[in-house]
Design a protein around this nucleic acid. Structure first.
Length: 437
DNA sequence: TCTGGGGTCCTAGGACCC
DNA sequence: TCTGGGGTCCTAGGACCC
């Protein structure tokens, strides 16, 4: 009954590890990666964790410690992480085609083809191979449900020496021991609110949750909570999702590098986001039936209380053409933009996505639609080949993210702050050449 | 001065219908 | 005019994930 059906393979401090692959001198040193705009800490090496730097800490609050302790700081580089992630996945795919890509740094593997006594060696082999082929260290947790595999994985990361990085929960005793060592807030599916509530009831560990009555959990934590409970008890409620389902909503937004007051600058930003968003939309073969544009002032400022406004429109017919989306997005923006405010963020959301093949066309629009479709396909392939900035619209502004600027004032204010940027080692040929010479 | 971005699922309650 | 039950759909808000 306790056969290990699932393994969770999770990259250790993934973003940090990606940088270390190309700068091995950073091994053993404290390293952190910041969110977009150098806002807050989103990845830490073990050495940085040991310094007490917490996940989500705003950079300005840890600047001093970073200086004192010689913490190496990076701006985030999603092109690099995305490419490294693909390498890890294709390595795992050599082991089994039955795998679920759960996030940029985690995969579930199906183990049902293994005999119980083979699981541990298999986990070790996976770990060694990924390390050798990609340079990325991973941990492997295996158990009979996904939630228990998550538990196992957390504990695997803490193990040292010969046991480092792989943990299999093969029987009731091992499961109980693991659950007793797992804090309630560390259980997959238990967030801040549930954890707080459970602690008030003196439930402090996963083991405590495991022993609560089903009825109470169903009533107070909904069916998702009940699923977590049952999975902790060893009853699988979630299967592998081999094919990632099409997104139901797609959103692209960024904070500005500096506050922005001019409509023209906000338009450049929104247009850039819209092109990205439309590219994602076409990437999954969908069309959008409605779209929302939102615009924010600083939510941390006490004076500007109306920090969020948004507007949505229903499109006459679903589209994936960025020309149409740009037209609508900028019209909505003009509606909600108010002069005299300092904005910090703009974004676009696409909803009610349907497969492009299901869009109903009438006689008058069919030809136009076909022409636009061809145009978009051409844009997509050119951008794939020459980079996303290779083809753009006047309304996006002349400058690119990644351009070098003589001084800060020359850079459009909406562009991301990336004080600690690193090269895209694996995806930008020009930069690889620069590094080598 | 400086605080990320992008998603999913579930539930309760209201509107509406027969 | 008064009455009841049951169903669907939509939306907003909350909770969760990485």
């Amino acid at each position: 009954m306790n056969t290990s059906r699932f393994a969770l393979v999770d990259c250790n401090s993934f973003y940090v590890s990606c940088h270390r692959v190309f700068q091995p001198e950073l091994n053993g040193r404290p390293v952190v990666v910041l969110s977009n705009n150098d806002g807050c800490v989103i990845a830490r090496s073990d050495e940085a964790k040991a310094l007490g730097i917490k996940m989500g800490t705003p950079y300005f609050q840890m600047k001093e410690v970073a200086g004192q302790e010689q913490v190496k700081v990076f701006s985030s580089n999603y092109e690099l992480y995305g490419d490294m992630s693909r390498r890890v996945v294709s390595t795992l795919a050599q082991f089994t085609p039955h795998l679920e890509i759960y996030s940029i740094d985690e995969c579930f593997l199906d183990l049902s083809h293994l005999a119980p006594e083979e699981v541990k060696a298999y986990g070790k082999k996976v770990r060694e191979t990924v390390r050798q082929w990609t340079g990325i260290p991973v941990s492997v947790g295996a158990a009979c449900t996904k939630t228990l595999a998550k538990v196992a994985n957390r504990l695997a990361k803490k193990q040292t020496g010969k046991e480092a990085g792989v943990l299999v929960l093969a029987n009731q005793q091992e499961v109980e021991q693991a659950l007793r060592q797992t804090e309630i807030g560390d259980v997959w599916g238990i967030g801040r609110q549930h954890a707080k509530r459970l602690r008030q009831m003196e439930v402090h560990t996963a083991w405590g949750l495991r022993n609560l009555p089903e009825g109470w959990v169903r009533k107070n934590m909904a069916v998702t909570g009940l699923r977590t409970l049952l999975e902790l008890r060893g009853e699988p409620c979630q299967d592998l999702e081999l094919a990632s389902p099409a997104r139901k909503n797609i959103c692209t937004s960024r904070s500005f590098g500096r506050p922005v007051a001019e409509l023209g600058h906000v338009k450049e930003a929104l247009s850039t986001h819209t092109v990205r968003c439309a590219t994602k939309l076409r990437g999954q073969g969908s069309c959008a039936s409605s779209l929302t544009v939102f615009l924010m002032t600083n939510r941390f400022a006490v004076t500007e209380h109306d920090y969020y406004s948004s507007r949505t429109i229903q499109l006459a017919r679903p589209t994936s053409s960025e020309l149409e989306l740009l037209r609508h997005a900028n019209a909505l923006l003009e509606d909600i933009f108010r002069a005299g405010r300092r904005y910090v963020k703009v974004g676009i959301m696409l909803h009610e996505l349907i497969p492009a093949s299901e869009v109903q066309l009438d006689l008058f629009t069919a030809r136009n639609e076909e022409k636009q479709g061809k145009l978009m396909a051409t844009l997509d392939s050119l951008r794939q080949r020459f980079g996303h900035h290779a083809l753009k619209y006047g309304v996006q502004g002349a400058r690119n993210e990644g351009d070098t600027f003589e001084n800060e004032a020359e850079k459009p204010p909406w562009m991301l702050k990336r004080e600690f940027a690193s090269p895209c080692y694996t995806t930008n040929i020009r930069e690889v050449l620069v590094v080598k010479t």
